[in-house]
Structure formats: structure tokens, C-alpha cells
Design a protein around this nucleic acid. Sequence first.
RNA 1: GCCCUGGUGGUGGAAUCGGUAGACACGCAGGACUUAAAAUCCUGUGACCAUUGCGGUCGUGCGGGUUCAAGUCCCGCCCGGGGUACCA
Length: 961
Amino acid sequence: MLEAHYNHRFIEHKWQQIWREKLLYRVENETIAGKPKYYVLDMFPYPSGAGLHVGHPLGYIASDIFSRYKRLNGFNVLHPMGYDAFGLPAEQYAIQTGQHPAKTTEDNIKRYRKQLDRVGFSFDWTREVRTCDADYYQWTQWIFKQFFNHWYNSRSGKAEPIDNLVAIFEHEGNINVLHQGDEAPKFIAEEWLDFSVAKKEDILQKYRLAFRKKTTVNWCEELGTVLANEEVKDGVSERGGYPVVKKSMWQWFLRITAYADRLLKGLDTIDWSDSIKDMQRNWIGKSEGALVHFSIDGKTEKLPIFTTRPDTIFGATFMVLAPEHEWALTLPDADHKAEVKQYVEHALNRSERDRMSDVKHVTGVFTGRYCKHPFTGELIPIWIADYVLGGYGTGAVMAVPAHDSRDFAFAKQFNLPVIQVIEGSEPFDGSASYDAKEGRCIKSDFLNGLPVKEAIQKAIEAVEEKRIGSRQVNYRLRDAGFGRQRYWGEPIPILYVDDVPTPLADRDLPLELPEVSSYKPTGTGESPLAALDTWVETEDGNRETDTMPGWAGSSWYFLRYMDPENEDVLASREAISYWGQVDLYVGGAEHATGHLLYSRFWTKFLYDIGIVPFEEPFKKLVNQGMIQGVVESLYLKKEKVDGQSVFTCTSLLTPEKIEEEYTKIPILVDFVQDYEKTDSPSYLNLESLKLFVDWRPEFQNAVFECSNGTWQNGIFDPKAKSYEPKFFTVSEVGKMSKRWFNVVNPDDICEEYGADTLRLYEMFLGPLEDSKPWSISGIDGVYRFLRKFWKLFVDKNGNYIPDESTPSKESLKTLHATIKKISDDIERISFNTCVSTFMIAVNELSAQECKSKEILDSMLILLSPFAPHIAEELWEAGGHTNSIVLAQWPRFQEKYLVEDSKLYPVSINGKTRTQLEFPLDMPKEEMEKHVLADEVVVKWLEGKTPKKVIIVPGRIINLVV
RNA sequence: GCCCUGGUGGUGGAAUCGGUAGACACGCAGGACUUAAAAUCCUGUGACCAUUGCGGUCGUGCGGGUUCAAGUCCCGCCCGGGGUACCA
């Protein structure tokens, strides 16, 4: 009945089928006989056309091991999977081929599912979600509506219904309202009641958590579309490399800034890596300082600025406004108007690329106006310069060149005075600014002698006393753009009734994505939906044609898994309170400031409006590292020689030559010899060269200058009486992607070695969180381990070995040491050491010739989270009728590990010289006697008496001479 | 620049609380079985010196320090990876 040799193909196919038929991994939303719940989640994938590569399952394998482990330990485990199915690549593909994105997405999902199934995951597929299903995005739209219908009350510190706000307005205007949002003009109740509907909405927009704002977007003329920040690299479009300029447009936003402080504070309550938390902290960028109003000479308005260094106010020698500042054009005096206008226009129209490549170049223009220094009364000039950001603070700064390097560079450029007001430990020589927040104030009147920190407080107090400013906190975080001018996304459920944005009624949700004839951008900056007049125009008004960004659906998907088929709510209250927070979330660190921040934001909002009973979605987060690939490429001469392409071997090139004359052409790694070896260079031989030109026919007649001759059209002309062509390639470590032709498909590994080997091997590669290049070398070791494991159970003739014999003391010790180590290591997500532990255990049990079923069955359970197929097969062979998934994790018993003696390392001056065995209960004094009498110790003491003898019971003995 | 990481044999990595550095595996070398190969099994494998047996010296990026004892803690550097970048 059993095969004598481990046959992964048969076993894995068999069990995957049984698991599927029996719905073995299905979970119920209820406490089964007092089982506690545990929620393990993976970041769901975007189903791209390329399929999975070996890097994708890394995190899934880890979470699967953890889920199975928790299940065996008596938890009711929710471990679902789904698809983040809206997104650009499908749309891009649709534009190129005319295929509906829904169709390609469906195809890709099928392929993903097949690949995932092959790895043997324990997902509960009955709970699958897809963000592009109307049943799903109906709730994404519903949440958007809630954002629209709420505002952030700073007094209560949470989101509240907009109707409450309107009631307040009708009662007392907005005089007493404190909110997180845009500044709104003050009005009283009577005025509010008189406002037109449009005017009211204009005001409400400054409060709503989902609102519209006119902003600059990244406009790419060539692509005829607006690009997200992520799609712009170095000032040009990531795809195609076309120039990107700024364009002003109305856009939907979510007011994440209202939650900035709570997002910051919440970080202290969750178990995430420091690096991710830090990234979020930096991204939110809280800075405390002061808002100070400087009076403008000859004007009644005051210029507000934000500074974190009010202690340096006596060193302020000029003011600077951003070119985007609302006064930039109105402030300058007559003599400077024209010049300023020219500068501002130029600065605003510069493309991203110009601005980026020009960071070093300091520019600016004087307005002809002056501010009055609030303490000295001196006049200080107001400038306009693009080094000041329009969107941060008030878009204006007081420049303190002596203590801010940016102001310093500007002062040097335009010959403005530099006044030192902080004395640090180093002398100030005027060649550079002193930016450190250390030292004491000088030349600063009432601040003199104070250390920086105290001076900041005192300066703020002084400013407040003078009623020219106040303490203020600023955040770097910006409100999140929520509209995309794209087709393949959730339609925003808004109708413009007489130009007033109005959400659809709940009964009209989902607002389904209509069919369009073309997925191409309209060229006007609107989404392809805008061309569909029949859809846009309704009886009540025109529809919003923007769709939601990719992160909309993924911001709350973890809730839908709890109750995926609910038609009345996004998930029932019972389901949400039963499953609660995600206990373990596994995914890539690249989502640090995107998905992971947005999910936290949405969760906090849903908490405020009473949908979820917790503020943080993911209790513990583990970031798996990236599995990189080897990128192989060839050097091609930029210029053809005699009309022919010429490739040159790396051994014939110098770095300068490469820089000037060559470009890199990537090659399918499979063609390259030794590409996996780190110790020898990779190269192309006769066969590889043929493969390459067949693969890239445009290089059919290319010349290959090899290290030892020239190859062309299949003919090799050796330099000397040489042997075979050898053409060395460039090897780099990079992303595994279709683009670099280095994708390793998990299916191939499953076919050759099996899913169990793939699972173990991916874990064995190293710590989960580390990035590492994929290499097949070493996989044999893991495969060999499984075969050895098999041989513990099955003899040469296919007979089942284990029997009811009494386990030996040694075997019990091996088993319990293994139980302890595996349990501990799984708990701390150290799966690579688990694999080593299994190898050690199998080596030991083999040596002991262990036949005890009791021991071996326990080993099966321990291994089952890692290699479920082989474990299930051998479990069944042992006569068990229930799946091993339903077994119980073996109980660790200390008594089998207790030793009565210990082989102590004995060191002299910290260096181990010998080993001596002593009973663990021997008193220190007696041990010391034995140690001092030892031959080796005596030799090392050279007749001297040790100064000190350190004996740490159960650990070590050290003698100091 | 700033923030976060990491640096250990030929390779991937282990050492969880400061207590025998290099577990486990790959690779390599030698051997057994075999007509042969594959598979399997056994032995060795940080470097250097010694090698007849012992043994010895050095060694966790570099330089200091704390300690009976440092890969692990502290100070100062060097290098790689990731994030972020005029955020006042």
C-alpha cells in the first residue's frame, strides 16, 4: 500500500484533492466548545498576468505554518485568502489588447488559485473576496459615503455625523466649532440659514472627511493621463519615461490628517517592527513649534509663519514665501511686481524633473516688501523662493541662515546677513550653518544664556504674551488623494445635483462599473467613464467619473473575510466582535506608508462610527523579506558596427568604456551557464549563444566578441586554437520579475521536488524577514531530509515500520527536545531553525533506530504545519482515520530532558581548555576541588594559584590566573 | 543629509538571558556499495602552525572600552541594503 520511496507527486495530488473535497479548512464563526479564536492574515495579492513566482509564497508559507500550528493547539483559526483585483496593469493590458479587465483579471485569478493550491495552503476558500466584485465594492462605496457624511470634531476627538454639524450651524453658526480640516470662514446661525445650497456645501466640504479640493496633480501629456506619485520616478513617468508636469484639477480626498495624532499614538499599542513604525512616524512627521504672525511694513495683514525654532527668532534676517503662496503675486511692490510674476510662473510651471534635477541651484526673488521683527522692530526683507514648500505649514518661513542650512545657502546666494544667535560647542566661523538643537542663546535679548530647549518654550510664551502667535503642531502627512482618472476601479458613488456633490442612497449601491468601448484615457484628464454620456447623465444630475484608488478596497478587506456573504452590512456585528483584530498579519514591507497606514486610518474611522470595536486592525505584523532573482545581461554597443549589432564580453571591457559605449540587454537566466554560482563568473557557451539569438531574432546576425574569439551566425572564429566560445555576462541581484527574465515558477519546483520540499526549503533559506536571492542549491538537502523522514516509517519493501514498542529514553529525549524547540521557534516566527531542528531529530531517531509509533506519530504532528502532505500520508498509513489537521499538538514534558550531570566547559582566563563532567547537584566547593586537581587545568595553571574561580552551575567554569 | 537595518567559514545560515563561535544544510575532498552510473551510507572540512600522537596561535567589518567571560553591552569609524528627502 505504501511506496518504498517517497513519491511527492502521488502524495500531494492525493491529499490536495481530499482536503478540497472534505472542505477541511472551512472555519465557522462561532466558538466551538470553548475554542479561542485566532486570525492569521496574508496581504492578498494583485493577480498579475505573470503569475506567482517563488517569492510570493514565502509569506503565505509562513502564515500557513503558523495557522496550522495554532489549529493543532486548539484555536479556531481564520486564515482566508482573496484578491486585490482592481488596478492599473489589467487596465493597461485592456488598453493594449481591448480585452475587458474583468476578463483578464478572472483569468489571472484562476491561474493564481491553481498555483496556490499546489503549495498546499490551508486557506478557507469559501471566504474568498475580490475587491472588483460588486458584492464587495458595494461596501467600499458605502464606507466612502460614511467618510463623506462625517466630520472630525476636535473637541470630542472623533468623527461625528455631518448632520450634527449642520444642526450646530443652524443653531449657533461655526464660531464654537473646533474641527480637523480646512479653515472655514466664520459665520453665525442666521448667515448659515441664508446661504444657498451650493454655498452651504462649499463650507461643509471644509469639514467632511471625504471632500473635493483643487490641487495640482502629476499630468503626463504623452500618456494623456494623471499619474499617481508612485507612478512618477525622478520626474518622469515610470512607464515610458515621459515628462510629467503639474496641473491643477478638482480631486477627491480623504482627510487622513484629522487622524494624524491618533495614527501616531496607536503605533505604541501594536506589535510591529521598529522600522515600519519609524517609517510611519516619519511619514506622519509630527513637529511641534510656533505659529508667529509677522506684521508687514505698510500693510494691515500679518504674515503667518510656522517654525520649530522660535528660539532663533533674533537670528531671522529675512522671510521667504513659497511661489504657491496666496500672496506671492499680490504682496510685491510696484517695482518688483513684474519680476516676481515671472519668477512665480516659472517656478510653478517647471516640470517635476527640472525641479528635482535642480535641487542644488538656489533661486529666489525679492518682493520689495519688509516685515517688522516683532521684538527688535527691525525691517527684514520678504523674498519668494521655491525652496519653501507651499503645502507645509503656512507656506512661509522666517529664515535664520545661521542655524538652518537651507536658509544659509539662500543667504550666501543673495548676500543676506547671517547672525549667530546660538552658541554651540564648536566656534561659529560663518562658513556653514549650525543646525543642531544644542547650545545656548546669545544676542537674543530675553533669551540670552538659555539652552535651546528652554529657549524654545520661553520664546513661545513671549509670542503668546504679545498676542502675535501660539504654540502649534504641524504634520508632514497630507490628505490622501482618493480619485483616479481611470476605468478599472470602484466608481465613486456621487451625483452632482446642480453641481452640488450628493452621495447615492444606500439602496442604489453598488454603483456598478459600466461597460465602456474604450479603456484609453480621454486625453482631457478625465477617466474613460466620462465618455459614456448615457451613464454620466442621470435625471438627478451627472455622475462622478473618477474611480477609487487601488488602496480603497484593501483598506478594509480583513473585515469582509469575517462574513463574506453578508448582504445587509459589510460584516455582521457578531462576526466582527467574534474575530476581532487580526492577530498575525504577514506581508511585504513595501506597504509601510501606503496600505498599512490607510488600513489603520479606516479602522479608526470605522471605530469612531461604531462599526468595529477596536482601533487597530493588525495586532502583530511580520514583514517577509523579498526573494530576489539573479539578473543576467549582455553588453551591447550603442552604435551598430557596419550595420550590425555587436555584443562584447565583460572580460574585454573597462568601466569607462561600458559607461560611454554600451547598454545592457537582459537575457533569460536559463540560457546562462553557472548563473547561480557566486564563486565563478556566469557565461554563455556555444549552445547558450544559439538559444539567445533564437529567442531574440532581432539579434540573429549580431556579432559576439567573446573572451576567446568571435561568434556570429552560429560560427565561432577562435582567436587562438581555442576550444569553445566563452562569453561572460553581467550578473546582478535584483527583483524577480518578468522584465528581467529571471522568474522562477513555484509550479516547477512543486513538480520536481514537491510542495513539501518547496515549503521547507523557502523557510530554510534564512530568517523570514531577510531578503535573499533565490538559489536552488541546497534544495537537495531538504529533499533528502524528507526521504530520510519517510524511511523512518517505511522499509525497503513498502512496509509500515512503527510499532507499539516502548520508546527508548534517548528517543523520548529527542522527541521532547524537538517539541520544545519547534514550539518556541514557531512562536517567535523562526522557521529556518525549525527546519534544522527537524533534521537533527531525524538524524538522531535514525541513529537510534527508533520504531516507536508513539514517538513517530508525535513527530508527524510537529512536522505537519511545515510539510502537510507527507505528514498526512504517513499519518493515514499509521491507521488514523481522521486528518492530521485535527490532531493535537504533542505536550512537552520537561522530565524527559532532565539530566543529572553536565559536561562543563572549563576555561582559563576566558579560553576553553578542557571539559569536565559533574553532577548538577554537586556543591560549588567540591566542584572547585575536582577542577583544581584536573590534569589539564594543572598544566595551564603552571603552578600558580588561581585568583578567582567562577562556577556558574549548569553553565560554565572559568579560572582567572 | 536624516531615519531604520545588517556585516559570522568557500556558500545559505545557527548561537533566544553576556557563558564551549561556526548548529543544520549546501559545496568540496576522500572512502564504501556498484561492471558502471544514479541513489544511499561513512569520514573529513574556519585560517595558520605542528602533525608521530598530542597540541598550539589567530579568528564574528575596523579601532577602543566595560567584564572572570563579548558575535552579543558601551563609545568612535568603515561598508552593504531599505526608507525618506528642501517638511522650517
